[in-house]
Amino acid sequence: MTNDQDNGLSRPQRRLLKRLYNARAIPVIADGRPFLTYKDAVRHLLSLATDQRDAAYAEMKAHARDKAR
């Protein structure tokens, strides 16, 4: 996936997602769906409208944070 395809996400969002999904063994749940790879997560986020995208991104971020504890 190139940066041209990631235009719907900001650079900090892409960087955080790459860190969240780096060598992940337990999927992150967002919108009731499990995501194990960065590419799957970005593909899903880019398929959503902006408001829904922001909500799903926040859900991924919160889920990863909660599971890290």
Rank of each mutant, 00 (worst) to 15 (best):
L16Y: 07
Q5Y: 09
A25D: 11
R69L: 13
N7I: 15
K39C: 07
E59C: 05
V28P: 01
M1V: 06
L20V: 15
M60R: 05
D66Q: 13
P12N: 03
F35E: 08
N7T: 15
A58D: 12
T50Y: 09
F35P: 03
N3M: 11
V28E: 00
A56C: 04
A55F: 06
R14E: 07
S47N: 11
R69F: 12
S47K: 09
D51Q: 14
R65L: 06
P34F: 04
P27N: 02
A62Q: 14
I29V: 12
D6R: 12
R65H: 08
R11E: 15
S10V: 02
Q5K: 10
M1Y: 08
G32I: 06
H63Y: 09
S10M: 10
R15K: 13
V42K: 15
A41C: 12
R24P: 03
N7H: 10
K67R: 12
K67V: 01
S47W: 04
E59D: 13
A64W: 05
P27Q: 04
R14S: 10
L46W: 05
A49R: 12
A41E: 07
T50Q: 12
L9M: 07
L20K: 03
L20Q: 12
L20P: 02
K67T: 06
R11K: 13
L48M: 13
A56T: 06
N22D: 10
L46I: 09
K61T: 00
A64M: 00
Y21V: 01
L20Y: 08
D6N: 08
H63K: 09
R11W: 11
A68K: 11
E59P: 06
D4W: 05
D4M: 08
Q13E: 15
A58S: 15
V28F: 01
R14L: 14
T50V: 04
L48I: 04
K61R: 15
N3G: 13
R65C: 00
R19F: 07
F35R: 00
I29T: 11
D6L: 12
R43K: 12
P12W: 05
A64T: 00
D51M: 10
R43N: 11
N7D: 10
D51T: 12
F35T: 02
R69M: 10
M1Q: 08
Y21S: 01
D66F: 09
Q52M: 09
N7Q: 14
T37F: 06
G32N: 10
R14G: 01
T50I: 03
N3I: 08
F35K: 00
Y38N: 01
D66K: 14
A62R: 11
G8F: 08
K61E: 00
R24I: 00
D6I: 03
Q5R: 11
I29C: 05
A58R: 13
A49D: 11
M1T: 08
L9V: 03
A23F: 11
D4Y: 12
D54S: 14
D51A: 14
H44T: 01
N22V: 02
A62T: 09
A23R: 15
R14K: 15
H44P: 00
D40M: 02
R33Q: 14
Y38K: 07
L45D: 05
T2W: 04
M60T: 02
Y57I: 06
V42A: 07
K39F: 10
T37Q: 08
P34T: 02
R15H: 11
A23S: 10
V28Q: 00
F35A: 01
A25F: 05
R19I: 06
L46N: 15
A55T: 14
L20N: 01
L16K: 14
I29K: 11
D54L: 13
A64V: 01
N7G: 05
